[in-house]
Design a protein around this nucleic acid. Structure first.
Length: 297
DNA sequence: ACCCAGGCGGGCG
DNA sequence: CGCCCGCATGGG
């Protein structure tokens, strides 16, 4: 059992992060549950909100974990070790983001496997969240490897090697469409020539420069991998939602270049820009901020 | 029918 | 550097 303040499982799950693409969330009254499969086993988490703003989190697991490793998995995955009070204090620079923080209190940046984040966000380009989920789940279901769970065997996320062995047309058939060629080449690189694990200890700017070498990884996807796969919170992914929202709130409604928006984000929020991005992104999608002329799916 | 989706690479000036 | 284009596919 883990007790933490300032945590909201539903918001953390539904805010367009990798868990949204391959986990399963449900709520029954006061009880929330989340289950997902890792490379080592199946994790199932229960969460209830109690008095004083505390959430009580318990978890169960199968597969190749020690108790200690399983706890680390849950803590890292849900960002339970993030010091939210100081993060909020650091990014609460104006009323727009202040409102987002208040409305979405407890939403965390999740911590994910770098390769899984890479596959998810290469898939995400010029796509929508619902379809990304379908494509990622389809690729998982086609994987030959699995782990034991309470309800029998479950497929695991395909490794770079496994994806690189799939043909482009096979990947396209998973729904990836024109992204199939990117998935194939990124998988080949990560399997045989590009070491994702070596980015962990590199500075943000250096790691980003490396990721940009991958075919199919551009500015936005690289920042997503760094933020959600490596916990580098200075990363500030700029997608269509963030671009629109930033222009509305901080550029007088005028168009601004990606470069200019990056500069603004760094000046405003520096080391926690990625957290600011997460709150702006989800608040915009829920029409809590911005012009809200687009419908959330 | 038309528009959009957590963008990217390539080609151009 | 900035700008413009095409791109698979499915849902509003």
């Amino acid at each position: 059992m883990i007790k933490v303040r300032d945590f909201d499982l539903k918001l953390s799950f539904e805010s367009g992060q990798p868990l949204t693409f391959y986990g399963d969330y449900s709520r029954n009254g006061n009880l929330e549950t989340l289950s997902y499969v890792t490379q080592q086993g199946a994790i199932s988490i229960s969460c209830t909100k109690g008095k004083g703003g505390f959430s009580s989190i318990s978890y169960d697991y199968t597969g190749n974990y020690t108790d200690r490793e399983a706890e680390k998995e849950v803590v890292c995955r849900l960002g339970l070790d993030h010091r939210m009070e100081s993060i909020y204090a650091s990014i609460n620079t104006d009323m727009h983001i202040g409102n987002a923080i208040k409305s979405l209190h407890g939403m965390r940046i999740t911590g994910n496997e770098p390769w899984e984040a890479t596959l998810c966000f290469v898939t995400s380009q010029f796509n929508n969240i619902k379809r990304i989920r379908g494509i990622v789940k389809s690729m998982i279901s086609k994987n030959d490897y699995g782990v034991e769970t309470e309800e029998g065997e479950a497929s695991i996320f395909p490794s770079p090697e496994a994806v690189s062995r799939m043909s482009i047309s096979e990947l396209a058939r998973s729904g990836a469409g024109f992204r199939a060629k990117y998935l194939k080449s990124v998988a080949e690189e990560c399997a045989y020539s590009f070491d994702l694990s070596k980015l962990r200890n590199k500075k943000y700017s250096e790691a980003k420069e490396q990721l940009l070498q991958l075919d199919g990884v551009g500015d936005k996807v690289a920042d997503c991998i760094l933020l959600y796969g490596y916990g580098k919170f200075e990363a500030f992914p700029i997608d269509t939602w963030i671009k629109r929202t930033m222009e509305q709130l901080y550029f007088n409604g005028k168009q601004a270049s990606i470069r200019r928006i990056h500069e603004m984000a760094e000046e405003n929020w520096g080391p926690y820009a990625g957290y600011a991005q997460q709150y702006l992104f989800h608040a915009a999608r829920l029409k809590m901020i911005g012009a809200g002329k687009h419908v959330v799916r």
